[in-house]
Amino acid sequence: MKLHKTKTLVLFSLPAFILYFVFMVLPAISAFIYSFTDWNALYKDFSFVGFDNYVEAFFDRNFIGTLSLSFRYVITMVLIQNALGLTIAVLIDSMKRQSIWRTLVFIPNMISLITSAFIWKFIYTKVFPEISAITGIGIFGESWLGDATLAFWAVTIVSVWVGVGYTMIIYLAALQNVPVVLKEAAIIDGASNLQTFINITYAITINVFLTLNGSFKAFDQFLGLTGGGPGRSTQVITLNIYNEAFAGNFRFGYGNAKAVILFLIVLIITLIQFRVMRTENS
């Protein structure tokens, strides 16, 4: 009986497992192993070099710059996207016809990131100068994709534009999870609504970590809007890894070491997330 159970479990899991093993587990293991080699796609031979790639990454000015840019971008995203998402959710929550507002605000989330990047490229390069000419507001007349600081904001705006609808929906759900009776009671009492408060804190935690995780993996909008430029000013970690391996350098060993570093960063964030949510739940 027990053997039979094991057999069916194996049989039922096998199709998923084979593809999962070949395309997820194997790449993960080999990324780890190759991160300790000097493998370059241009040469046939490679050898193990210990922690050399990691040491190089640590002293690689470009990579450190890339990392600090990623952190800057992630923190900016967390602050802006959550502030805006919560604001819009609160506004919508007080409306009578909520679904129409929700639908409109959520639309950008359905457009692929690369398409969104191109839509905004048009806005930044063609429409902004015209707005500047009409209104005389100087900021619209600047070169949004040519200036390092503005390019950072240009990409951030696109990311928020796409992501804010998702954040808003989670906040809206948290607000609406509160039974109406309680809400009215709270208004009558003039007391602070404990349930709303608990729901909102929980939603904030979720959204902050969702944005944290998602923003570290941001890639498409940077590729489509600035390609990492001007110079290297908007080259985030994902783009840096991509360039290391596929655009010119072909240093797979070093690229994989950076890939493992990205994994470790995301892992640490997730572990913190689990800890925070556990304490919040208890």
């Binding site: 790449p27 994989n256 990205l262």
Partner: peptide
């Protein structure tokens, strides 16, 4: 099996893209 299948949700795609392309 459950752990093996779900733990990889922590792995960003960009961490495996180089070796996935090779494989």
């Amino acid at each position: 099996l459950y752990l093996l299948f779900t733990l990889s949700m922590l792995i960003p795609f960009h961490s495996i893209m180089i070796s996935l392309t090779q494989i």
